[in-house]
Each structure stands twice: as C-alpha cells, then as structure tokens.
Design a protein around this nucleic acid. Structure first.
Lengths: 130, 130
DNA sequence: GTTTATGCAAATTCTTTGCAATACT
DNA sequence: AGTATTGCAAAGAATTTGCATAAAC
C-alpha cells in the first residue's frame, strides 16, 4: 500500500464523530450512511481510521463492534485499557476517562484489559426526575 | 414450559465442562459435538443451563460467545462481575476468582461490569522456559 | 496515468426460528 | 399419552472478499 488519500468517505466518517465521546455501532454507521457510502466502504474506512489511531473500537456485550473517536488514546493499541460505558436504558456507549489498575494474578501475565460498565447515563438518570 | 427433563444432551454438556474453570466458545462446542448433538441443540442446551445457573457466558473481544461452568457464581445475573482471562498465545479463556471494585463515575449510575484480561496463561508461561 | 478507494454482489460466519419427529416421565 | 426436547433446513444478522469501476494524486 502506498500513500493514504484524503477522500470524502474518510472525512465524512470523522465529521460524524465530531468531538463526541459517544460510541456508535458499525451497524448504526452503515444505516446512517445509506446512499452516501457503501456498507463495505464503512468497514474499510473504519479499519483505516483505526490503523491511523483516529478512531478506536471495542466489542460490546451484545457482540457488536462499537467505534468511538480517540481523544486521550495514546495509540490504537492502548484503547483496550480505558473503560467504556453502556447505558442499559438508551443503549448509548461512551468512553470513560478513568484509570483502572490492572491487578496481579498468580501464575498469569496480564498484558492488557477490556473494561465495560453498564448502568444509566446522565441523560437517562435526569429523565426520571421529570 | 413445564418441568425440565434430564436428557443426554444436557448431561453431555455438563460433563464436557467438568470441574474446569476454562471457558469454551459456542462455536467450539458445536464442532466438538458434531454427530452427537445438533448445532441448534447446543445453543438451546446452553441457554437452558444458563437459565438454571449451571453455566455462564460472556462475550470475548472477538465477539464470540464463551461459556464456562459456574463455580462461585451466585446467580446467572452475577456473572458479568467476575473477570475473565484470555490467553493471547493459546487462546484459552477462563474465569478469574478476583474481586474488582466498581468505581464511581460522576453523573452515571453503574450497575454491573464486564472485565476481560489478556495475557499469558500459566501453561504458556511455563512452556517458554523449556 | 498510476495507484488508492469505492460499489456491488456474493460468500462466510455465528445465531435464531419454525415445524415435524423423538424421547423423557 | 402428553409435553419437553431435538434435528433439520432455512432465515437472519454482521462481516469479509473478489473484482470491476471511479476518484485522488
């Protein structure tokens, strides 16, 4: 492969995430771009942007692939170690800026981790008191 | 639904896990039972045994469904909160008997969690020194 | 003009469903 | 005998692949 090119698909994908910490499923992105970008292209653009360290992904409990913009991520390899949160009510996922120490486990060498939290997001919590 | 029955499929499935803490993918179980139990039955037996609290499952980073025997699990709903480990070398997954405290996150209500650790298991670590 | 990126269709993989046949009690 | 359980085939959902066409440089 040679030099990466600036394309409409790539720019559109990045614009979609903006400065948000919220994650989106690949499936949702495919729907969102219907007519503008082919399904296959969505997958390929995401792969590229992950390689470039601009987006990162994680697997939800549902087995779906979620993607979010990299803000504090040092590298695309670092993404496992910052926790993600998924709202049980509205389903949105987001990155948590939270440091979790990796524990020592006897007879195991732990190199990386994947933390996923479930509960209610700010918006859903607030909606109860209305 | 009425009373659960004791069947060969159910017993075979439980025997397969024995007293091991290791987890198996559903895909692997389907292969393992080829000729003895239909793919559909594997899925249904697993669902039943999870409902009964005898097995529990979690989603791996690969998006695959992993299943393990419940030892310390209080209930099938409790399973999210005990961590799992996956070996980067041999690929085996297992349950970790480890308590991880759930952190407080501002403006979020966290109800449950999913912890997945990656690294090298005992067996693979030992094989290096041979 | 050359090479990277995209679109489309088809293939793959994991999982679920419907329904008739089987087996447990 | 009655109903839970199973097998089989087919449908579904998410993702990948191959190849011809289009777009960036």
């Amino acid at each position: 492969m040679g030099v990466k090119r600036k394309t409409k698909s790539v720019e559109l994908m990045l614009e979609t995430f903006g400065q948000s910490k919220n994650a989106l499923t690949v499936v949702d992105l495919v729907k969102r771009f219907e007519g503008k970008m082919n399904k296959t292209t969505v997958y390929r653009v995401l792969e590229r942007l992950e390689d470039e360290g601009k987006l990162h992904s994680f697997t939800g409990k549902d087995g779906l692939k979620w993607v979010a913009k990299c803000h504090g991520c040092i590298s695309s390899n670092h993404t496992d170690d910052h926790p993600h949160f998924q709202c049980n009510d509205c389903g949105i996922s987001q990155c948590l800026s939270l440091d979790i120490s990796i524990p020592k486990v006897a007879n195991h060498k732990i190199e990386s981790a994947n933390f996923l939290f479930f509960g209610q997001c700010e918006q859903c919590l607030n909606s109860y008191s209305e």
